[in-house]
Computed example of a mutant assay.
Amino acid sequence: MIKSMTGFGRGTSEGEISSFVVEMKTVNHRYFELNVRMPRTLISLEDNIRKYVNEKVKRGKVDIFVTQNQGDKDSMEVVLNEQIAESYLGALHKLKDKYGLRDDVSSSTLARFPEVLTLKQKEEDMDQIWQELLPSLEAAVLNLCSMREEEGKKLLADITSRCECISANVEIISTRVPEISEEYRKRLLKKVEEILTERNFDESRIAMEVVLQADKTCIDEEIVRLKSHVNQVLETLKMNEPIGRKLDFIVQEMNREANTIASKVNDLKLTNVALDIKSDIEKIREQVQNVE
């Protein structure tokens, strides 16, 4: 099933130690990129989150926001960073000695400085914390994937519709090509006749004109390849796996064939049809940029 890379999901869970709110959003990206914002006390769980999300989301830029509300305060402990505290204390003493300040440093004063005291989750509780966080993460991912699938249905409908338009326009060109070839043939005969009226004509020049004119009219190969590429897009859309990169490559090939056709058809009507094909291909390319 085709999936969009754009989506949003939210999940909540409550446990004995903590309750959690997980929110996540995704946008299009060439690869899988995950950014997690959560309390520092949960940093050891980031790899668990990454592995779980990557099993469900294969491509896109993913932002996850984890909010934790503490339930059991006994699961937390205050950690003193003695090295930082001593550094602050030494700096304060230097200030006192240098400027003759009053020595009024207290433990409460020192505790206010950054990183002196930190709140840390007790290591023995992290497994339980993960089990309490997981349901909210699962719900958020489920809601996200559901939204991406709904967006994918819209992409599928649009891309399929444009492929049908391209196929119809290719048929118009294919039907008109024999008429154009006949017109070219007449022009070629006229050109040859003009050359033959010259007293000293060059046979190589005639051969060159024939080759040039024939090359201008021959778009059979391009038409066959363009039809094949359209079929490849439609078949790829049926695949039950990430298809964004594959579609992007096929669309590039479609655009190359359409450019060649547009440059070869020396006919106003077909030139406009070729431009319509190029327009639909460009719109497909824009849509494909958001396919997982």
Rank of each mutant, 00 (worst) to 15 (best):
L110K: 08
I223L: 13
T260D: 04
S279Q: 07
A207S: 14
L188D: 04
E33Q: 15
L110C: 02
K154M: 14
I129Q: 06
I84D: 01
I281Y: 01
N231M: 13
Q121V: 15
M254D: 00
N28I: 07
K238I: 05
E221T: 12
D215C: 09
G244Q: 00
E193S: 13
G11C: 02
G7M: 02
E171I: 03
S108I: 11
Q289L: 08
V192F: 06
E77C: 08
H93R: 11
T197S: 14
K154Q: 15
H29K: 13
S13I: 00
T271F: 12
D248A: 01
K246E: 06
E86I: 08
L134M: 09
Q287L: 03
V177L: 11
N143I: 01
R148W: 04
E241Q: 06
P114R: 06
Y184N: 10
K73S: 07
E282F: 05
A207W: 12
N48M: 08
D72V: 07
A262G: 14
V251Y: 04
S87I: 13
T197G: 14
Q70N: 11
Q131M: 12
I43D: 12
I284R: 02
V141Q: 05
L196I: 12
K73N: 11
S19L: 06
D72A: 12
K98N: 15
V79M: 10
L144T: 00
R205M: 15
R50M: 10
D127W: 09
I129F: 08
H229A: 00
E282N: 04
E151H: 05
K56F: 09
Q213P: 03
Y88R: 05
L234T: 05
I2K: 04
K269E: 15
V224E: 13
V224S: 10
S107I: 15
L155D: 03
Q252R: 06
E171D: 15
N28W: 03
P135K: 04
A168E: 15
K191Q: 12
K61W: 14
V170F: 02
Y31M: 10
K58V: 04
R30N: 14
S13M: 02
G11F: 06
Y52C: 06
I64V: 14
G90Q: 13
L110S: 06
L270K: 03
V265M: 10
V62Q: 05
S18R: 09
R10C: 04
A140Q: 10
D280V: 02
V141Y: 00
V62W: 00
T6F: 13
V210M: 10
V273R: 02
G11I: 04
T118Y: 01
K283F: 07
K186G: 08
L226F: 08
Q287H: 11
L247S: 02
V288T: 07
R256Q: 04
R148N: 04
S228R: 09
R285S: 05
D97W: 05
D280R: 01
K56W: 13
S87V: 09
I173D: 00
Q131S: 13
I173C: 06
L80V: 15
C163D: 01
M38N: 07
V116L: 00
V105Y: 07
P178K: 08
I277F: 09
Y88I: 01
E179V: 14
R199Y: 10
S167W: 12
V211T: 14
I277G: 00
E171T: 07
S108Y: 07
I250Q: 00
L80P: 02
L42G: 04
E150Y: 07
